[in-house]
Design a protein around this nucleic acid. Structure first.
Length: 601
RNA sequence: GCCCCGGUAGUGUAGUGGCCUAUCAUGUGAGCCUGUCGAGCUUUCGACUCGGGUUCAAAUCCCGGCCGGGGCGCCA
């Protein structure tokens, strides 16, 4: 018998119908005579009942009972019978199919299951098995409704993105996975070439150069759900292979690209949450983000910006500030925890705890004052003239009941610690509204970063970003990062379509002409054959999905992720391979036990 | 490469030097039970990550390895 319905679709409309369901035996309840089974598939759970007094199976009764006796947990079974209303008072309101049950008339075991290593019901998060157990038996873990829901959510996000791209005339183009290894960037995953012994392909860290060449090729709107590979250590939000929603457009300016991305996000939000996103998203210049929030991806679901007050307090005879300010590059920044945020709940003990906390984050301590109707109060306000106090109150917009916190030290350290303190306060005071999503563009990022030790310039984003204005006195690129709730979802930029400008940038990054030719010759050559002005962006799909679903790690939204050590508990990869395979590739592994390095000379 | 946290039946846990022949729950096998729904009841099975050390005595303390997680570095 073929199945006629899924386990999620039967309801009162189907009363009296003969149906056949197939799925997994989730739970069974044997009352001695009457038997209940929860039959589950990816669509839901339907109660199957065997009632010896009600069922009309004639002489097949003992056969049917023998079959039902084989219905062990997670076995795959087929049952046919009629849909009937449950006995009044026994309906299950939590289950969409809870009004009805299927009175079984015939049954078959399609596939037996061993006792599963963990339970597959909808347990609470803290009752889940350890993650490596879940990953080893991922096919069982994925049977859980929560995981099916996640897979479906991700699928819908991707199809909405495709739908939107299609409607805007984007062409989905696949770019190679076997590509050229280039310098800079992350460590490559290398793939040895059998035909060219000693040569290697690299798996793409992103399709950056290919999509730019598609622009040269006149494909003026490209997108791809691109698998990317980076051989760097994992984090909760980083996997060695991940998926980017990659886009590139020609004949556009920055505004066009941001608008397109905002449109796509709105389409996705509408489709998944039935929620209108407010566009355009707020924008913040990189420098301003660093100055006010101490990070390049601030969480704007709450306020609490930092205010630099260095100049206001410079002359105040407060010993701690004076000591800090005597050193060059120092700064004093304040945070105003307002009364409405709950400053009143931060008593002396809580403030002391915060001081201990900031000390762990590189600060010598923290100065604080309270604003009252009488003005500022603290055991140290006596060191500040009324003029300075007024300056602080004005700069920090302090009102009675507010608590002012000050960090002093080397500017970069103050901003970093202040940014972390800001996030800690938001969490402690519950400033983040549940379910809120706050997008933000960070624009005008620097072109270059200087290594503090070697003094060497490196590209802030990548070497293909177009500078704003003239390169020589320009430190800013025409680039943008999309942030959601304080997490970077992706970044993009306008690119250099002028080959000479591109060469100058590569050379500023320390590439000799020879090196440039060797590593990027093919790319520079392409730019020389009529490259249109173009730009684009790449968004992290795994991060987007995990943030939208409030997951702790992107592993939760990837069907078969690697663990922290880049090992796959499911298939056991990576593995050693036979010598035969290595020989064919003319590779000798130094990790092999029987290799004597001296023999290799 | 570094720092932090963890590892006890299949699964989730309790146990911080002797009361451990290791707790509880769930699961597994067996049995009972005619309206349950992560059914209930009885019963069975089943574990201290590995190697050293300290101690009269180690699941418990110390060192190292392995494994897992979080982070720093790294991730243009």
């Amino acid at each position: 018998m073929k199945r006629t319905h899924t386990c999620g679709e039967l309801g009162s409309d189907y009363l009296g119908k003969d149906v056949c369901l197939q799925g997994w035996v989730r739970f069974s309840r044997d009352h001695g005579g009457i038997l209940f089974f929860d039959l589950a598939d990816a669509h839901g759970i339907t109660q199957i009942v065997y009632d010896p007094e009600d069922v009309d199976v004639g002489s097949d009764r003992s056969t049917l009972e023998a079959t039902l006796d084989e219905f062990s947990r997670e076995s795959v079974v087929s049952v046919c019978g009629s849909v009937r209303k449950r006995v009044p008072g026994t309906e299950d309101g939590r289950n969409p199919t809870g009004e009805v049950e299927v009175l079984v008339q015939s049954a078959e075991v399609l596939s037996r299951s061993k006792a599963p290593p963990f339970e597959i019901g909808e347990q609470k998060e803290h009752l889940l098995p350890a993650e490596d157990t879940r990953l080893r038996y991922r096919y069982l873990d994925l049977r859980r409704a929560e995981m099916i829901r996640t897979l479906r959510f991700r699928h819908r996000l991707i199809s909405l993105a495709r739908q939107f791209a299609e409607s805007k005339g984007f062409l989905e183009v696949e770019t190679p996975l076997l590509t050229r290894s280039t310098p800079e960037g992350a460590r490559d995953f290398l793939v040895p070439s059998r035909v060219h012994p000693g040569s290697f392909y690299a798996l793409p860290q992103s399709p950056q150069l290919f999509k730019q060449m598609l622009m040269v090729a006149s494909v003026d709107r490209y997108f791809q759900l691109a698998r990317c590979f980076r051989d760097e250590d994992s984090r909760a939000d980083r996997q060695p292979e991940f998926t980017q929603l990659d886009m590139e457009m020609s004949f556009v300016d920055q505004e066009d690209i941001l608008e397109t991305v905002e449109g796509m996000m709105s389409h996705i939000w509408k489709g998944l949450f039935d929620e209108e996103l407010q566009t355009p998203f707020p924008r913040l210049r990189y420098q301003e983000a660093m100055a006010r929030y101490g990070t390049d991806s601030p969480d704007l679901r709450f306020g609490l910006p930092m205010v630099e007050v260095t100049e206001i307090v410079r002359e105040a005879p407060y010993d701690i500030f004076q000591r800090v300010l005597s050193k060059k590059g120092s700064a004093i920044c304040g945070l105003n925890v307002t009364a409405s945020m709950g400053a009143g709940d931060l008593g002396r003990n809580e403030v002391d705890r915060l001081i201990t906390w900031v000390k762990k984050h590189g600060m010598g301590g923290m100065t604080w004052m309270r604003m009252t109707t009488e003005g500022l109060e603290s055991n140290i306000v006596k060191y500040f003239t009324s003029e300075v106090q007024e300056g602080l109150v004005a700069a920090m917009d302090a009102a009675p009941g507010d608590l002012l916190l000050f960090l002093a030290g080397p500017k970069a350290r103050v901003l970093e610690a202040g940014g972390l303190l800001r996030e800690k306060l938001a969490e402690d005071l519950g400033l983040i509204e549940e379910g809120m999503h706050q997008f933000l563009w960070i624009v005008d990022c620097p072109m270059f970063e200087k290594d503090p030790v070697s003094g060497k310039l490196t590209a802030f984003h990548h070497p293909f970003v177009r500078p704003v204005g003239d390169l020589d006195d320009c430190s800013i690129g025409e680039s943008y990062d999309l942030c959601l709730n304080g997490v970077e979802l992706g970044s993009g930029s306008l690119r250099n379509h002028d080959v000479d400008l591109q060469r100058r940038i590569l050379s500023m990054l320390g590439l000799s002409d020879e090196r440039m030719e060797a590593d990027f010759g093919f790319f520079l050559e392409a730019l020389g054959y009529g490259a249109p002005p173009h730009g684009g962006i790449a968004l992290g799909v795994d991060r987007m999905v995990s943030m939208m679903l409030g997951k702790e790690s992107i592993r939760e939204v990837i069907a078969f992720p690697k663990n922290k050590r880049m090992h796959s508990p499911f298939d056991g990869s990576p593995t050693m391979v036979d010598d035969e395979k290595l020989n064919e590739l003319q590779i000798i592994s130094l990790a092999m036990d029987d290799i004597d390095l001296d023999d290799l000379e």
